[in-house]
């Protein structure tokens, strides 16, 4: 039940180099790094969508890229960067797509999961609304609800806060926190270091495909790490939990 995700010397030629880390469920993990550092690649590897050229990813005892596709899909929920929705489906239909890996499960169970996901993302009012008539923030929540409807052990999201305004980003982070408190593993690729600093329990910093820092945010995103990895002089301001980054 408490299956952890373990990266062992994971290498993807030209993108990741010998990344080793063990992620336990509960708590929010953030993957940070400059553009091109390998953040999305690492998340794809964790999600079992990309097989590493060397090393392996284990979910509990099983190797992720060797799991049967449906089994993997039931355990690892993945939200890609800039997700698309090809057809103008309703929110409820969109969320129901999260049940696809559970072929053969009773309909009542499916409906229960869909309802719970819609409630968890506070989308009750939009249940029957076509997705093209949602705001960016509502759409992001609907896509998140789709991942939740699968009831995965892990939520892996690639820059889920991109293009969201402050209020919607804060709401979504709160939802991620709730999911982590329920015992799910939450791994987010985050561009905004202040968000990672304030909301993550553990931060993994990638630089040129290597894991250069891994630990609590105060340690992994220290001013010296930021100087070394991002190449900017930066200073953390404010209190823990409400920090802001001053650059220059």
């Amino acid at each position: 039940m408490s299956s952890s995700l373990a990266l062992d010397q994971v290498t993807v030629t030209g993108r990741l180099e010998a990344v080793t880390a063990k992620l336990n469920r509960g708590g929010i993990k953030a993957i940070c790094g400059p553009n091109g550092a390998g953040k999305s690649t690492l998340l794809s590897v964790l999600a079992g969508l990309l097989a590493p050229d060397a090393g392996c990813v284990r979910l509990g005892a099983a190797q992720v890229d060797r799991l049967p596709a449906a089994e993997r899909a039931r355990q690892l929920g993945y939200l890609p960067q800039a997700p698309e929705i090809a057809w103008d489906v309703s929110v409820e239909t969109l969320v129901s797509l999260g049940r696809l890996p559970w072929r053969g499960a009773p309909a009542s169970e499916a409906q229960g999961a869909i309802d719970a996901a819609i409630a968890a993302m506070d989308l009750e009012r939009f249940r029957h609304r076509p997705v093209t008539r949602l705001s960016g923030g509502e759409r992001a929540r609907a896509l998140m609800a789709r991942v939740l409807a699968t009831r995965p052990d892990w939520l892996l999201a690639d820059e889920p806060l991109a293009n969201l305004d402050l209020a919607h980003a804060a709401t979504l982070m709160r939802r991620f926190r709730e999911q982590a408190q329920e015992g799910r593993g939450v791994v987010l690729v985050l561009h905004d270091l202040a968000t990672a600093m304030n909301h993550a329990d553990r931060v993994l910093v990638l630089h040129h495909g290597r894991l250069v820092a891994d630990g609590p945010p105060g340690h992994a995103l220290s001013e010296s790490v930021i100087r070394e990895v991002w190449g900017v002089e930066a200073r953390w301001l404010g209190e823990p939990g409400a920090r802001a980054l001053a650059i220059g």
Binding site: S44, A69, R72, Y78, P80, W87, L97
Partner: peptide, 20 residues
């Protein structure tokens, strides 16, 4: 048919939903 439904969310998400 079900795989096509999953593709509504794009190729990466469809694969994460178990589509081969």
């Amino acid at each position: 048919a079900r795989s096509l439904d999953a593709l509504t969310l794009g190729e990466a998400a469809a694969r994460s939903l178990g589509v081969e």
